[in-house]
Lab assay of single mutants.
Amino acid sequence: NKSRCTICSKLAEIRHEVSVNNVTHKLCSNHCFNKYRLAN
């Protein structure tokens, strides 16, 4: 079950899903999750 990561755009296994204003951001790693948190 692979999806495209919101941060790095890599097609990968999604580890984190963050839902903001009915938009789901898919994040493939802790690294991308941290980058997402810093950016938002």
Rank of each mutant, 00 (worst) to 15 (best):
S9I: 07
C28I: 00
F33A: 12
N1K: 11
R4L: 07
V20L: 09
H31K: 15
R15V: 14
H25W: 11
N21L: 07
R15T: 10
N1S: 08
V18I: 03
K10H: 06
K26P: 09
I14M: 11
A12D: 03
C5R: 00
S19L: 06
T24Q: 08
T6W: 08
N22D: 11
V23L: 12
V23G: 12
L27W: 03
K26I: 06
T24K: 15
T6Y: 04
N21P: 04
R37P: 04
N21R: 11
E13A: 07
H16F: 01
R37S: 13
V20F: 14
H31V: 15
N40G: 07
N1T: 15
F33Q: 04
V18K: 04
S19E: 14
I14V: 13
S3D: 04
T6A: 15
S9K: 14
N22Y: 05
C8S: 00
I14A: 14
N34E: 15
I7D: 04
A12T: 13
K10F: 01
K35P: 01
C8Y: 00
H16E: 06
V23S: 11
L11S: 07
H31W: 09
C5P: 00
L38C: 12
I7L: 09
N1A: 07
I7Y: 11
H25D: 13
N21S: 12
N30G: 13
N22I: 03
N30T: 14
I7V: 13
E13R: 05
L11F: 13
H16R: 09
K2H: 03
L38G: 15
I7R: 06
L27G: 02
S3V: 10
C28T: 00
C8T: 00
K26Q: 10
K10R: 10
N22Q: 15
L27T: 03
N1H: 02
C28H: 02
L11R: 10
L38W: 08
S3T: 06
I14K: 02
N30Y: 02
S19P: 06
T24R: 09
N34H: 05
A39L: 12
I7P: 01
A39I: 09
N22T: 09
C5L: 00
S29R: 01
H16Q: 06
N30S: 12
N30A: 13
N34C: 03
F33E: 08
S29P: 02
R4P: 10
N30R: 09
K2G: 03
N30F: 04
T6D: 04
S19W: 03
C8A: 00
N30K: 08
R15N: 07
L11M: 12
N22E: 13
C8F: 00
V23F: 02
L11K: 09
C5Q: 01
V23H: 09
I7F: 01
S29W: 01
H25K: 11
R15K: 14
S9C: 15
Y36P: 05
H31Y: 02
H25N: 05
E13T: 11
R15P: 10
N30L: 11
N21H: 08
N1M: 09
H16I: 11
R4S: 04
